[in-house]
């Protein structure tokens, strides 16, 4: 199958390793990967801030680029939710309404794609560390992804998995983290404390944006706990 990879803007600039891992994993599984250079961003920042016209300015060419894709795969629950759930809402009553629905139906978050679409859980990965998993809220609640990442991690050789005691938002929330930094930070501190309590070496997530927030706090706190994208773990051979 030809997989069109959607690389979110922050992953492109800040966390290229996650994207590269996705490419390598998909190619090892025998799929052709394409990645349209023209796509920069899904339009979520203006959308979440209420500037839907500006969001459409960004999203409309994205839809055009993805029009004929067989499957669109995104390494972020948040951007995935933007396309799968919010594009149909954003383009409601516009000429692109139908296209938005079609693209949404062919779009997958990375872990969900591997498990639900390709039926793969064992990628032959080895990662001898104790890890815990952070469910990004968009992936968890907008897309309902909970079991796929765990199924994938359960097959990683040497990996010791421990669940967080409480499920909560990391406090990132896009522009929220800059508009209300004090609340965002408090939420992140709660998350970091819960992760530290597990005794894990790594917090794994299928969303780099959450990890950016969590890592930002951990680094500032001088914590030894590290964050890593799920794709990078799965790509450790």
């Amino acid at each position: 199958m030809t997989v069109t990879l959607f690389i979110p803007c922050f992953m492109d600039a800040l966390f290229p390793r996650a994207g590269i891992s996705m490419v390598e994993i998909l190619e090892r599984l025998g799929h052709k990967v394409v990645c349209p250079n023209e796509i920069a961003c899904c339009g979520q920042p203006p959308f979440n801030s209420g500037y839907w016209d500006e969001a459409r300015t960004i999203a409309a060419p994205v839809l055009e680029k993805l029009k004929s894709a067989e499957a669109v795969v995104i390494g972020s629950g948040s951007c995935g939710a933007m396309i799968k759930k919010f594009y149909p809402e954003l383009f409601k009553n516009t000429p692109q309404a139908e296209l938005a629905k079609q693209v949404a139906a062919r779009t997958w978050e990375f872990s969900d794609f591997l498990v639900s679409k390709l039926g793969v859980t064992d990628l032959g990965a080895k990662f001898a560390h104790k890890v815990t998993f952070h469910d990004g809220c968009h992936g968890l609640r907008e897309l309902g992804i909970k079991t796929a990442p765990r199924a994938l991690l359960s097959k990683v050789v040497g990996l010791d998995f421990v669940e967080l005691k409480e499920e909560s938002c990391c406090g990132f929330g896009g522009t929220f983290s800059a508009k209300f930094p004090m609340i965002s930070t408090a939420m992140g501190e709660v998350k970091c404390a819960a992760a530290t309590e597990t005794g894990a070496d790594f917090i794994v997530s299928n969303d780099s944006s959450c990890l950016m927030h969590i890592q930002g706090l951990l680094s500032r706190q001088g914590s030894k706990l590290k964050t890593i994208h799920l794709a990078e773990v799965l790509n450790q051979q």
Partner: peptide, 22 residues
């Protein structure tokens, strides 16, 4: 500063994904 008062910023990668891909 709204971010960096309490959190570190990740460095922009020396080579972005798109650059690697190209």
């Amino acid at each position: 500063r709204q971010w960096t008062k309490t959190r570190d910023l990740p460095p922009i990668a020396p080579e972005s994904f798109k650059e690697w891909w190209a």
